[in-house]
């Protein structure tokens, strides 16, 4: 095993060779490994973003007049989803998707809605270039009684279309929309 050998030990003197006690060291390492494995945390949690479009304090560089941009309004109704592209108060396009849900375990998903929103973004999305720092905005209108699980399923569908986004020198795939809730 591991040791220190200086080749001495002659002439009546005590030898200076030493064996390094590896066994207790290995025991210690094994204990450490077991402790760390037992306390290890592998989180499976994630998050879905939404932002509140609330007015902040006035900034010096703020523009006096902001041009209205196209926004996608997603109305979650009882039997269908209504998708309305609006520019200010002007309706640009309106379409509907049947509310067909697919259950994945205990969760609900809306793959048809996700497909439709992806196509809508391809046709009407304004911010597609990787260098574009702005994102298209989607506004979610839901009934007050809608369960949160369904709200998340709709948000998940809205986040399905992805675009490239430049972060430093790298491009990343990020959701094409920023979503907020409609306030009545």
């Amino acid at each position: 095993m591991a040791g220190i050998d200086t080749g001495g030990g002659h002439g009546g003197k005590r030898s200076s060779n030493h064996e390094i006690p590896l066994i207790p060291f290995i025991d210690f390492l094994l204990c450490l490994v077991m402790f760390l494995l037992v306390t290890a945390v592998w989180s499976h949690m994630a998050r879905i973003e939404a932002d509140a479009k609330v007015p902040g304090p006035p900034r010096e560089d703020e523009q006096d007049k902001i041009e209205p941009e196209k926004e996608l309004h997603v109305h979650a109704k009882e039997r269908k989803f209504q998708l309305v592209w609006k520019e200010g108060s002007t309706v640009v396009e309106e379409s509907e998707v049947e509310r067909v849900s697919v259950n994945v375990g205990d969760d609900v998903t809306f793959p048809e809605l996700a497909k439709k929103i992806g196509k809508q973004w391809t046709d009407h999305g304004s911010h597609r270039a990787a260098a574009d720092k702005k994102f298209d905005r989607a506004i979610l209108h839901t009934d007050n009684n809608t369960e949160f699980g369904v709200v998340i399923a709709v948000l998940d569908a809205v986040y399905t279309p992805q675009r490239e986004f430049l972060v430093g020198n790298k491009t990343e795939e990020v959701p094409a929309f920023h979503v907020t809730f409609a306030a009545k």
Binding site: M45, A46, V54
Partner: peptide
């Protein structure tokens, strides 16, 4: 809750979910 958080100075709201 969303509105209360936004007006309390937290406009960047995220919802915790599991991964599907």
């Amino acid at each position: 809750v969303f509105q209360t958080a936004a007006f309390a100075g937290y406009p960047a709201v995220s919802f915790m979910v599991g991964r599907l």
